[in-house]
């Protein structure tokens, strides 16, 4: 059986209207098509200005296409009548945690979304508690958000999305402003949402170690998809990714360099364990 597609881009074009006096607008997409099956963990990579954030904003109707269609769970995002339903289906988490916290108490912040949807108070209470438990922030429910660490704030923002019962979460560089520990917390939360709750996750990131954990990696350049495959097959293209201004995981790069120098090692290595095992195999024979 074919997987159900939750987000579908069909030949979508979009350009920002240049302000007066401005010349070039970046982040344009042109003839962009993409199917995201329900339950997938999709990572989108690309350098700044390649159009990935534009794609993210097209996913829940913050932007609507100039031409072509974006369909979310069967709804056309250009349809004004459907805008609320689209946003109920696809939640967004942005880069800067400080820009997306609205309340002065953690649980009020998480309740903000469902309140706006007109959910009944007792149901809100249930959802808020459930969402905060899911991201491991329940014990912080009475705290002031500005006293939390960056990673904790992002988890509260994610809880706000969960409390809206969205089927899909789009995250635009949610870990870019966090320290390694905060990044780990947020990545663990993202994986849990996807694996345990079956929420479709679209993660935009510059961190390759995060992309490695996805089911599928899409690499964008100049508003187009240039690579689209499982992580192992995408990261094999070391040269191509570097030319696009992107990284590969260090373990992948090490294997690539060794292979270039004539060291007989596989070219689809993703992490430190695989890399060490492959090196051992070669050197132990010697």
């Amino acid at each position: 059986m074919e997987d159900k597609v939750i987000i579908k881009f069909d030949n979508v074009s979009f350009a920002y209207k240049a302000d007066e006096g401005e010349t070039v607008a970046t982040g344009v997409v042109d003839g962009f098509s993409l199917n995201v099956p329900e339950g997938q963990f999709l990572a989108i990579l690309g350098h700044n200005g390649c159009g990935k954030s534009t794609v993210a904003k097209l996913m829940n109707g913050i932007l609507v296409p100039d031409s072509g269609t974006v369909t979310v769970d069967g709804m056309d995002t250009s349809d004004d009548e459907k805008v609320i339903d689209v946003r109920k289906t696809v939640g967004m988490v942005f880069q800067n945690p400080d820009n997306q916290i609205v309340a002065t108490i953690v649980e009020d912040d998480v309740a903000f979304g469902p309140e706006n949807l007109g959910v009944a108070p007792e149901e809100i209470r249930k959802r808020v508690d459930d969402a905060l438990k899911a991201v491991g922030m329940y014990e912080f429910r009475g705290r002031e958000p500005h006293r939390l660490s960056g990673g904790q704030k992002q988890r509260v923002a994610i809880a706000g999305v969960i409390a809206m019962n969205t089927k899909c979460v789009v995250m635009d560089e949610p870990t870019a402003m966090l320290d390694p520990q905060g990044r780990q917390e947020v990545m663990d939360t993202i994986r849990m949402l996807n694996k345990e709750r079956g929420i479709t996750v679209i993660l935009i990131t510059h961190y390759m170690d995060e992309a490695v954990k996805a089911d599928r990696v899409v690499v964008m350049d100049k508003g187009e998809i240039v690579l689209d495959n499982e992580p192992r097959k995408v990261f094999k293209n070391v040269e191509k990714l570097k030319n696009l201004g992107l990284d590969v995981p260090q373990a992948t790069e090490l294997a690539y360099r060794l292979k270039q120098a004539g060291f007989p090692i596989a070219d689809d290595i993703l992490d430190e364990k695989e890399c060490a095992a492959a090196i051992l195999k070669v050197l132990e024979v010697k």
């Binding site: 390694p180 373990a251 430190e272 364990k273 060490a276 051992l280 132990e284």
Partner: peptide, 20 residues
């Protein structure tokens, strides 16, 4: 203390724990 070493350093640590 919540920090990490680069991934290549981990490769070398694993090699070492395997006697190399």
């Amino acid at each position: 203390i919540g920090l990490n070493v680069p991934q290549v350093s981990k490769v070398f640590e694993i090699l070492k724990s395997n006697g190399m």
